[in-house]
């Protein structure tokens, strides 16, 4: 985006939990920060990676039996659980309906906005290795697969938020 730079502190968000409501919180902060002229980096690790899978439903990706079972059980963006009162996956759908009714942006809309705002998406090398997830399994918004040292270097001038 050809917008003037500014000297506000950067925001880095570690997306660890991968729960539906916490991903909403992460993307709300991320897009809000980017829209108010802050450089934003999101680092997806462990369960947070599920939100970035190209396959939105359940798919047994992975290199061995256990990782394939794990990935099938966790699923993708459509299977993110609510952190409270999940009721076997019914609540995220109810919550989405309530958000729609109240004109609150849905996760897909926030993720599209994040992409348009140029928010950087990094995926954690270590947790991808454990879970058997490859970069090709993730959406194109993921710029790089990095380790914690790179994330910290890139977040040197940032507030780091862990969600």
């Amino acid at each position: 985006m050809n917008l003037p730079a500014n000297d506000k502190k950067d925001i880095s968000i570690v997306c660890f939990s991968g729960e539906f409501d916490k991903m909403l919180a992460a993307y709300t902060i991320a897009t809000g920060a980017a829209a108010t002229n802050r450089k934003v980096t999101m680092f997806f690790t462990f369960w947070g990676l599920n939100a970035l899978k190209k396959e939105r439903g359940r798919k047994s990706i992975g290199k061995d039996f256990l990782s394939r079972v794990f990935n099938w059980l966790m699923g993708g963006r459509n299977n993110l659980p609510l952190s409270r009162l999940n009721f076997a996956g019914a609540s995220p759908k109810l919550m989405s309906g309530m958000m729609k009714k109240n004109n609150v942006a849905q996760l897909d809309e926030l993720m599209e906005a994040a992409s348009a705002l140029g928010i950087r998406h990094f995926a954690c090398e270590m947790s991808m290795h454990i879970l058997g997830v490859a970069k090709d399994d993730l959406i194109d918004d993921v710029q790089e697969v990095v380790g914690v040292a790179t994330f910290l270097n890139e977040s040197e001038n940032a507030h780091i938020i862990f969600i």
């Binding site: 917008l3 897009t31 809000g32 980017a34 109240n102 004109n103 942006a105 809309e109 906005a113 705002l117």
Partner: peptide
């Protein structure tokens, strides 16, 4: 006017871009 935080200023920023 129908948008809520953060899409209010997100939409303005994207439109200006």
């Amino acid at each position: 006017t129908k948008e809520t935080c953060p899409m209010t200023f997100v939409k303005v920023k994207l439109q200006l871009a």
